[in-house]
Simulated assay, not measured.
Amino acid sequence: MTDVAKALLVDDRRENLLALEAILQGIAVQPVAVESGEAALKQLLLDDFAVILLDAQMPDMDGFETAGHIKRRERTRHVPIIFLTAADRDSHLAVRGYSVGAVDYLTKPLDPWVLRAKVSVFVDLWSKNRQLQLQAETVREREAQWASLTEAVDESLTILRDGAGDPSAVARAVHVLETARWGS
C-alpha cells in the first residue's frame, strides 16, 4: 500500500492537465497526469488512486468508455470518478456519466475551489480507508499471535499432565512456551 493519496488526471489536452495540477497544489495528493483513456487504464494497473478526474470527451476512447472499463475491473470499481467536460450543460451527458459510475459531473470552466473541495473529500476518505486497512491487518496479526500462544499453552499443559513427576516435562513445557512467545 502506498502512503500518499494519488489523483489520476485524464485529459487529451496537456494544458488542461497542467491547469488541474495547478488547482490541486497544496492538497495532500500526488497528481498523475495521462493524455488518454488507454493510458489511464494502464496507469490503474500500476497504482491505486483516491480519485479520478476524467475528461468526458476525448478522441479514440472517450471518458464514458474509459469509466466503463474502470468500473468493470475489480481492483478499480470503487475508485470515485469525477467527470470534467467542456461540453455545454447537456443533462443527457451528465446522466450518461452517472450511469457509468461517476460520483460527479462538472462542466468547464471549473470553479477551482469546488474541485479542490471535492478532491479533498475523496483524499480524506482514501486516507481513512487506508488507516482502517492497516488497523485490520494489525488485528489479524495479533489474532494469529494469540492463537499461536493459546496453542502453545494447551500443548504445555498436555506435556505437564502427561509427564507428571518427570522433571524434564517442565523443561519441555517451558521450551514450547518460549518458542511460541519469541516465534523461534
Rank of each mutant, 00 (worst) to 15 (best):
I81L: 02
L54P: 08
L53K: 07
T85W: 13
R116Y: 12
G97V: 01
I81T: 04
G37R: 02
V79P: 01
P109M: 05
E74R: 15
E38M: 11
I82K: 01
D55Q: 07
L46W: 06
G101R: 12
D62A: 06
F83K: 03
V51F: 07
D60Q: 12
K118Q: 15
D88L: 11
S120N: 12
I70S: 04
K71C: 04
M61A: 09
D88C: 03
W113H: 15
A102K: 00
D47Y: 13
D47R: 09
P59M: 03
V119A: 04
T66W: 03
A86K: 02
Q43H: 06
R73F: 04
R73D: 10
P80A: 05
A50E: 01
P80I: 06
K108N: 06
D124E: 14
A94N: 05
G63H: 00
T85L: 10
A102W: 01
R116F: 14
P80V: 12
E38T: 07
Q57A: 11
H69F: 13
T66L: 02
V95P: 01
M61G: 09
D47G: 07
A56S: 11
G63E: 00
V79G: 06
S91L: 08
L54S: 14
A50C: 13
I70G: 05
Y98A: 10
F122V: 04
M61F: 06
L45I: 02
D47K: 09
A102I: 00
V51S: 12
M58N: 02
A94F: 04
S120R: 14
D90L: 10
V123P: 05
T66C: 14
P80T: 10
A87P: 01
I52H: 02
V121Y: 07
K71D: 02
E38D: 09
G101C: 09
R72W: 08
P112Y: 11
A86L: 03
T107C: 13
R116H: 09
S99F: 05
G63P: 00
V79N: 07
P80M: 12
A50V: 11
F122W: 15
L53Q: 08
V123H: 07
H78N: 13
I82R: 02
R96I: 00
R96S: 08
D124Q: 14
Q57W: 03
